[in-house]
Design a binder for these strands. Sequence first.
DNA 1: GTCTATAGGATGATAGAC
DNA 2: GTCTATCATCCTATAGAC
Lengths: 189, 189
Amino acid sequence: MKVSVRKREIIKVASQLFKDKGYNAVSMRDIALELGIKAASLYNHIEGKQEILSILVLDLAKEFTLGMNKIASSELSPTQKIEQLIEMHIDITVTQSEALAALNNDWMHLEGEDLKSFIEMRDDYEENFRSIIKAGIANKEIKNYHPEVILFSILSTLRTLYLWYQKRGKLDVNVLKKDMVAVLLKGII
Amino acid sequence: MKVSVRKREIIKVASQLFKDKGYNAVSMRDIALELGIKAASLYNHIEGKQEILSILVLDLAKEFTLGMNKIASSELSPTQKIEQLIEMHIDITVTQSEALAALNNDWMHLEGEDLKSFIEMRDDYEENFRSIIKAGIANKEIKNYHPEVILFSILSTLRTLYLWYQKRGKLDVNVLKKDMVAVLLKGII
DNA sequence: GTCTATAGGATGATAGAC
DNA sequence: GTCTATCATCCTATAGAC
């Protein structure tokens, strides 16, 4: 799995364009133009447009899966696990917001096995998160609301954080983590 | 502003396709196929593909703007205003999830004045929401966290609710409102 | 590693018959 | 109101020269 410098450049440039306009609205010519070369030259480094999307989405999905597995299998309490998950999402948002945009918005344009394996990873991730919440409710650490409402409320905030962090990016990451954990866990009133 | 029955059918079918695949991945031929006619026939009812997107996104944006203006200018407390906003989002999610998907994911494919007026409505909406939160903090009704974190956390949950409601759609709307208001306002622990 | 040239197909939209 | 036929343009990708 060695990836050349040029290939990494292509993926990076493409991810920035995907973030703004979406996978389908970005052409190989757009990507090439940004790199100062012709579209045909891209094919010396990558197999095609699909490969760029697969790398972006699947690499990040694997990173989320690894992080979740580590946290889920730890000895922490449910609440502490959720705190760790929130912090993981914030760290990934700060360092990989472009790939996160592709994962959120363009995963449906994956094809074949790539699409299947993405959906499987996403479903596993949600199932792990759901189990942590349910353990917390059983535990009395977490209030007895509908677990799906809790899961959705936290996940949707974390998943779209990238949209907002770029605009309000001046906010210190540690302040963000502290306030975000507090708002999501303890509410606002 | 009279809209023919056929035109409404076209917009409805298109919105369902846009929701699944995104504006750019849906062709006029796809829309026509779903209606059992040829792509060229669509142009007797609509100006073009762009018009479908404009109607979907701008009509819904205007509905949000109206709802916000009514709530913001009421005599309710900041917390009560936020409750009303949450309920409004849930009602719109339940009745217009396809248009909501377009508003969330495809607004950037609007052009010219339509794009400008959408962005203006969206910014106004957020500014109104922000003011309500700040009034609540000044009021001591709402805890003194970073207002942007509170705003983002609530808005991102409400904006992506349509993604989740379709999957877990069996949940009763009133149960959803009750639990969602509680989770967002009072937290989970 | 980049180029030019081009294949082969999809796209949004129009003209004009029925 | 729908059709067939078609245009002009864009798209991803390949072949082969340099």
